[in-house]
């Protein structure tokens, strides 16, 4: 199967690219092909330390690692994370920025992020149809679109269901199981999948309920490229239609 992926992102107002805490994979836009394609998007939690890096590790481990079940992906990421964390204090010492008291407790508590992973699988040879599956922890959303219609919204399908404390993947296994949700369906050639972090996803679902076609507006904004997309997001924020948070849209068109 073939698909074209394009990703656009923007940090919250007043923050630079280094402070952007969403993460997505693959990082490079363009066409992909293969019997199985994976895409992922994660949103690092504001209140935890190194959460942007944790989000990045999660999406890379899902897309680039062996095709494991999500539990294996998350535990594998935790293994890597904790090994890296052992040397982190020394790295900071070497960089002349020793760890401060307020970081010690944050590091011990772990990093946190939402996670959304999407897999598209080929159908039979020559078929125009295949299967998709998705796993999610938290409020990073997947929208499945076909011929201008919204077929599926996962894991949240109502704007009112977003909260300030969504389930998160912790870098520390603290005994509580990951609150993973799963969904699956079929794709047809020409379908589009949009992955969005919470501010954009909420705007999207509010628009859908109001009877607008937010997917058309979003598709135009995405197609216009990074600068017009940023301008479009700024406008939504200034009109208070969209929360001022990191925004990421990953669009996958099935070719």
């Amino acid at each position: 199967m073939r698909a074209r992926v394009s990703s656009l992102w923007l940090p919250r107002t007043g923050c630079g690219p280094a402070e952007y805490q969403d993460a997505f994979c693959p990082r490079v836009d363009g066409e992909r092909s293969g019997p199985r394609l994976r895409f992922a998007l994660a949103d690092g939690a504001t209140e935890s330390l190194l959460s942007g890096r944790w989000a990045d590790l999660l999406v890379r481990n899902y897309c680039r690692g062996p095709a494991r079940q999500v539990a294996g992906v998350l535990d594998g990421a935790r293994e890597i994370w904790n090994r890296q964390l052992l040397t982190y204090p020394q790295q900071r010492e070497d960089a002349g920025r020793p760890i401060q008291w307020f970081e010690e407790r944050g590091l011990a508590r772990g990093a946190h992020a939402t996670f959304l992973g999407v897999q598209l699988s080929s159908g039979r040879a020559g078929s125009r149809r295949g299967a998709w599956s998705a796993v999610a922890i938290g409020d990073t959303c997947l929208f499945h679109l076909r011929e201008g219609r919204l077929l599926a919204s996962f894991p949240i399908d109502e704007a009112g269901l977003f909260s300030s404390s969504p389930p998160l993947v912790s870098s520390r296994r603290n005994g509580a199981p990951d609150r993973t949700e799963a969904a699956r369906g079929d794709w047809l050639k020409g379908d589009t999948f949009v992955m969005a972090t919470d501010a954009l996803a909420r705007w999207f679902l509010q628009g859908a309920v109001a009877g607008r076609s937010p997917w058309s507006e979003l598709a135009s904004a995405v197609a216009a490229g990074p600068a017009p997309f940023a301008e479009w997001v700024h406008e939504r924020r200034s009109l208070r239609e969209m929360a001022d948070d990191d925004v990421t849209a990953v669009t996958v068109d099935v070719l």
Partner: peptide
């Protein structure tokens, strides 16, 4: 619990969590 609770990664996590912290 799996992952950090057992094996090498469990020891690593424990080492991290048991580091003394400075209380202001």
């Amino acid at each position: 619990a799996t992952g950090l609770a057992g094996g090498l990664s469990g020891q690593v996590a424990q080492a991290i969590a048991e580091r003394p912290v400075r209380v202001p």
